[in-house]
Amino acid sequence: MIEFKNLVKTFGTRTVLKGVSFAIAQGEILFILGTSGTGKSVLLKNLVGLMRPDGGEIWIDGEETSRFSEDEYLRVRRKVGMVFQQPALFDSFTVFDNIAFGLRRLEKLPEDQIRERVREALGAVHLAGVEEKYPPQLSYGMQKRVSLARTVALRPQVLLFDEPTTGLDPVTTTAVNQLIQELSRKLKTTSIVVSHDMNCALSIADRILVLDQGQIVDQGTPGELKKSQVPLVRDFLAEVLA
């Protein structure tokens, strides 16, 4: 169970998050929609400790984590894995070493178990056989999937996706969205997906939350959102219909 309570984040004189509060239940797929610069990615980065909020609280499994030290955040990062907007793979490492990185540092597993976990993770993203390749040798879509495999290999309870389909062609976008749903169901993880893609949100989300100028303007199931009268939600829906 994850809960944000009255979260505030400011950059200089600009307040990006203005008291955001919501909770997400275990196993749920939550989509956070909104236009660029509304603080969607900032929410995720606060959750995993890459940024610290200026106000409010973040609760993960009964612990308030926003005041955690960097060492204490290691416990959070064992539970919460993040897939970044860009693949963020280490170019000088092979695909195997990229995926093994977290297993060696965070889990400190022996090499034979690491090999097994890497094989499993690549299988989960339908990308077996690329272990010895370097990221620049792969297409952008494949790099995104390796990035997903790197996070999944750590077997997190919560998966965060920061605009996972940005920069992908429509076919790969559909494949990645299906993969998110498949992994969430198969691994029984809680998923928070930050996206602009209303179409995808309507098809795979359990719940959608719409953020505008640092505040939640609407939320509900895909069915409920379709009937929303909030102008921003109508704009997103109009784009899907178009």
Partner: peptide
């Protein structure tokens, strides 16, 4: 800028 440093932190390394 390609978020590799953030990824390192998320993967449990300093």
């Amino acid at each position: 800028v390609t978020e590799q440093i953030d990824a390192i932190r998320c993967l449990g390394a300093d």
